[in-house]
């Protein structure tokens, strides 16, 4: 199955992962995200979402952090996603 390369974290589906490129948010928020492990160059995997689809849990740097879709859409990723077997 081919699909456009996702440009943001919000487009990752459950089980997919990608490499974070940059955070398109103001400094204090970007900083807090980095402290939680969202550093450019880090691999991030999309895990379960809330039963209502949003927010979603992301596996990043050994822990799990939930983000709303609107926030995830500001995290730019690069390279095509790999489907990982769960």
């Amino acid at each position: 199955m081919t699909r456009n390369i996702p440009a943001t974290l919000a487009e990752l589906r459950e089980g997919e992962e990608a490499c974070l490129d940059r955070i398109d948010l103001p400094e204090p928020e970007a900083r807090r995200l980095m402290e939680l492990g969202f550093l450019p160059g880090t691999r991030i995997a999309a895990a379960r979402s809330s039963p209502f689809g949003d927010p979603r849990v992301y596996r990043v740097d050994g822990s799990e952090v939930a983000l709303r879709r609107e926030t995830a859409a500001r995290l730019m990723v690069r390279e095509s996603p790999e489907i990982r077997g769960e």
Binding site: R32, L36, S63, E64, A66, L67, R68
Partner: peptide, 9 residues
Amino acid sequence: ARTPFMLEM
């Protein structure tokens, strides 16, 4: 303005 929601699980 909305603050981003980030919660460690």
